[in-house]
Design a protein around this nucleic acid. Structure first.
Length: 671
DNA sequence: GTGCCCTTCGTTTTT
DNA sequence: CGAAGGGCAC
């Protein structure tokens, strides 16, 4: 497929700052890929002088794969494609000396963050979860807006602000003393460094001769600042974005950055991509009409030449269970009549918890599926514990990791011992791990406690040594040394769940092994790097066989951005869910509408909505209306499926049998 | 110091 | 209705 004239223009405009306004499905990734190739082949840029930045790991992964298709390994050598956070991490790792931190720092995920804040603020916030979350969000916002704790304190007006700013100071102090960074630091620290250190700035500006930014509308203040500092006066960059797909304002994303760009770079070249190559005309029409209810920064009119396409169906049900069941039944039927594959279907929803019922139903019918996103894997205890061990291995000063694992599995080192150890460490301004080496501790601890502590510490010391030259061996020894397998089976409620948990551990170890070895797409990493990447949830899902690819895709609307599927089910289209109740209360319908827009525009051939008339909330059943967004769509293009009475058990049985017959027929056919 | 039962509490989206 | 965390009993 050739590039159209706007795409061509976007690719070849390399003489100055360039903004590509790319509507959904208008081929923005193609433009980025082609532009990188153009820069290297025609403009003779060295690959290592080009950096492409995306917002999510998924997008980065996809871009890497597509680059591998159009450029040879040789041509692409040194080209960098990463997320904002990974790029920030790389810069910090290279420039840590200028930042006054140690080379082996740990990363905090939000769970760690909440736990620490909770502990730090116990005396003021009284374990109030709501307040703690508010505090966490406030600190994050401060960091995203490049406001340090001193400035926050100086600007604080109300008592609450002063208190929060004070907590911010404590939090920063604590992080620093344990050599820990949080996610926001990964952008903030490099930005501040580039801003304040001319030498480092010049070095990086010299390295980054051309910058490409995907999903630009999602950048927040510090990310925009980061971009500006990276491109410098040379201002050779391309950013690609679409204000209609701005769905991260809750994370500090500022679509206004599109406007600032024009102000900060008056010679900005703005190129619009308005031809959609993804969806049928009807799907696009419906999406356009929906989004017209929003105000716009830039006007654009998307069109498609792919034919009008099938009518858009709306499945309604009288309960969430039935909704899930009807959707899955519909999918099975559709797959059968169209002789299609599971891999061509996506089920999209607003919140992760909505996946539960769908998942249950898919399992019941033995349909292969895959849930992407969702933090569940890394939220699992066995993984969190193992991660804490790995963190301690790479950064023994990580007190949080220390506390998490010191008594897991049980070593008779409980809260009281840790408390005393903590006092000792605090007094001397050293980490818990360092303090554990101190024989002076015998003053505080009983012989028995002291001994357990020493045994552990000495064993771990040798492990750390080993991890420097033989990381994988160290990890196996770690697992063996703590008897992790038996511990897992002991603490599991059933053998089945024990097996499941053990499989998760094996999965993590095998990923780790892959990452340390490296492969075609990614170079080998150090243990530190791999551990950091895990915290960023950044890893490649490798070794996917054909079979595994043929799975129904389940994900949130947020996670679906940038992807496309032949057949899309957008479930949970009811008031309170989409738009979400909180957004209704906060009068933030526009972002919810964009979310719906993103979902609709994922569909290539067919789109089906579903909703339920009632919903369970806190165990109580409440009646709900279909989403207002369904009513905003052109009704001529919709087919509201009649809400029949629920199937009787006999009927269900019949259906089940016919389904079985269908499956059998297909299997026979396949053979 | 450990383990279990019970209450409590809450469900938006992610690096 | 389900998970996670707190409190209570050994």
């Amino acid at each position: 497929m050739r590039l159209n004239s706007s795409q061509q223009k976007a690719v070849e405009y390399v003489s100055g700052p360039c903004l590509v306004l790319a509507g959904a499905g208008s081929g923005k990734t193609r433009v980025i890929i082609n532009k990188i190739a153009y820069l290297i082949r025609v403009k003779e840029y060295l690959p290592r002088h080009i950096i492409a930045v995306t917002f999510t790991n998924k997008a980065a992964r996809e871009m890497k794969e597509r680059i591998a298709q159009s450029l040879s390994k040789q041509e692409a050598r040194g080209l960098k494609i990463s997320t904002f956070h990974t790029l920030g991490l790389d810069i910090i790792r290279k420039e840590y000396k200028h930042l006054g931190i140690k080379s082996n720092f740990s990363l905090f995920d939000d769970h760690d963050q909440t736990a620490l804040l909770k502990e730090l603020t116990q005396q003021w916030l009284d374990n109030d979860k709501d307040l703690i979350n508010q505090l966490r969000a406030t600190i994050s916002n401060w960091k995203n807006d490049i406001i340090d704790s001193t400035t926050a304190m100086a600007r604080a007006q109300t008592n609450k602000e002063k208190l929060f700013a004070h907590c911010y100071q404590l939090y920063e102090k604590q992080l620093k003393s344990c050599s820990i960074l949080d996610f926001d630091d990964l952008i903030l620290l490099p930005t501040l460094l580039l801003k304040n250190n001319e030498q480092v700035r010049e070095k990086w500006q010299n390295k980054v001769r051309y910058l490409l930014v995907d999903e630009y509308q999602d950048t927040n203040t510090s990310q925009y600042e980061f971009i500006k500092l990276l491109v410098g006066n040379r201002a050779k960059f391309t950013v690609v974005g679409d204000d209609d797909q701005s769905i991260y304002s809750w994370r500090g994303a500022r679509p206004q950055n599109l406007v600032f760009l024009k102000q900060d770079f008056p010679n900005l070249e703005v190129i619009k991509l308005e031809q959609n190559y993804r969806s049928s005309g009807r799907i696009l029409k419906v999406a356009n009409i929906l989004i017209e209810n929003n105000p716009h920064i830039f006007e654009k009119k998307l069109f498609s030449e792919l034919g009008y396409g099938e009518v858009i169906r709306i499945i309604s049900a009288d309960s969430e269970e039935h909704e899930a069941e009807k959707v899955i039944n519909d999918l099975i039927g559709h797959r059968f009549t169209n002789n299609s594959q599971y891999g061509k279907y996506a089920i999209l929803y607003r919140g992760n918890h909505q996946a539960r019922l769908i998942e249950k139903m898919l399992m019941q019918y033995r349909i292969p599926y895959r849930i992407s996103g969702g933090t569940s894997f890394f939220a699992r205890v066995e993984i969190k514990d193992l991660m804490a061990y790995l963190r301690l291995l790479t950064n023994p000063d990580d007190d949080n990791a220390f506390i998490r694992i010191i008594n897991t599995p049980k070593r008779e080192i409980g809260p009281a011992t840790i408390q005393k150890l903590g006092e000792w460490a605090n007094h001397r301004g050293i980490s818990l791990y360092q303090a554990s080496h101190d024989m002076g501790l015998t003053q505080l601890l009983s012989g028995k406690r002291m001994e357990s502590l020493q045994v552990f510490i000495h064993w771990f010391d040798t492990l750390i040594q080993k991890s420097h030259h033989e990381p994988m061996d160290a990890i196996y020894e770690l697992l063996h040394g703590i008897n992790y397998e038996s511990w897992i089976y002991e603490t599991s409620t059933s053998p089945a769940s024990g097996q499941m948990r053990m499989r998760n551990v094996e999965q993590l170890v095998s990923w780790l092994n892959d990452m340390l070895k490296g492969d075609d797409i990614d170079e080998a990493m150090t243990l530190e790097q791999a551990v950091a990447r895990f915290t960023l949830r950044d890893m490649l899902e490798r070794n996917e066989t054909e079979e595994e690819l043929d799975q129904v895709q389940l994900m949130t609307l947020h996670a679906s951005k940038g992807l496309e599927f032949p057949y899309v089910y957008l479930v949970g289209m009811s008031e309170g869910l989409l738009p979400h109740q909180n957004s209704i209360d906060e009068d933030n319908i526009e972002e919810e509408r964009r979310l719906a827009y993103v979902g609709i525009t994922r569909a290539q051939q067919e789109l089906t909505f579903s909703f339920s008339r009632q919903r369970k909330q806190f165990g109580e059943t409440i009646q709900v209306e279909p989403s207002r967004f369904l009513l905003e769509l052109p009704q001529d293009d919709l087919a509201w499926q009649e809400q029949r009475n629920e199937l009787s058990p006999e009927k269900k049985m019949q259906q089940g049998q016919s389904r079985l017959a269908m499956l059998k027929a297909q299997i026979a056919k396949a053979k």
